[in-house]
């Protein structure tokens, strides 16, 4: 069973529906015992970093994710959930992340040409940087759906795939058993579902 962590950040309906459509057993939960007993964990997230980080900390779920990451349980952070995996974020101030992947989160603004719109919103191509089992059912050049204004930095070693948007935007990152996806696989059509399927098989 895959536990989708519910910490009050974002709509989890599409995510659970997408896993169900693949025949993958999943549950939206904030129950610690249920999360501990899950085979895998997805950390979703939409909204502001500071607010999400506080909710994770106050609920104790952030600590639980870190503890379970240390046991080798596969974890996937999606969008803001991916950004939470890093050490720090500079989204309107400086905030601590979970520190499961080295690097920090900073604004696209100022890093890309003014002609490029922010947020980076729409379908963009994956470029592969490293081989990984997560790519089992997708190919370089497959499109994923992105919506974000901040991006992961100083994480080249942990970047499996990136998208070009004025800069190389880390799209899939990994540190051991911990994965992150900047785009929304649950909104990226058949190719997005293929990534979720590969994660479920890891």
């Amino acid at each position: 069973m895959i536990a989708i962590i519910d910490y009050g950040c974002g709509n989890l309906f599409s995510l659970s529906s997408s896993l169900e459509s693949l025949g993958i057993d999943c549950k939206i939960t904030s129950d610690k015992a249920e999360i501990e007993n899950a085979d895998k964990i997805i950390l979703p997230g939409v909204g502001a970093f500071a607010d999400a980080a506080k909710k994770l900390k106050d609920s104790g779920l952030g600590q639980l994710v870190c503890d379970l990451a240390a046991t080798g349980k596969p974890i996937l952070g999606i969008c803001l959930g991916m950004q939470m995996l890093f050490e720090k974020s500079f989204e309107y101030g400086a905030h601590m992340g979970l520190g499961l992947i080295k690097g920090y989160v900073g604004p696209l603004e100022g890093q890309i040409s003014k002609e490029l719109k922010i947020p980076h919103m729409g379908w963009n191509k994956l470029n592969f940087a490293k081989a990984d089992p997560i790519f089992k059912y997708v190919e370089p050049g497959d499109y994923m759906y992105f919506v974000h204004s901040f991006y992961a930095r100083n994480c080249v070693e942990n970047t499996l795939a990136f998208a070009e948007y004025g800069v190389a935007v880390p799209a899939i990152v990994k540190n051991g058993n911990v994965y992150g996806m900047q785009f929304h696989p649950e909104k990226s059509g058949a190719k997005g579902l293929a990534l979720l399927k590969a994660f479920s098989e890891i």
Binding site: S14, S17, E20, S21, Y145, G189, A190, L193
Partner: peptide
């Protein structure tokens, strides 16, 4: 639709 279609 949202249960079956996974695009925005």
């Amino acid at each position: 639709v949202a249960k079956e279609i996974f695009i925005p």
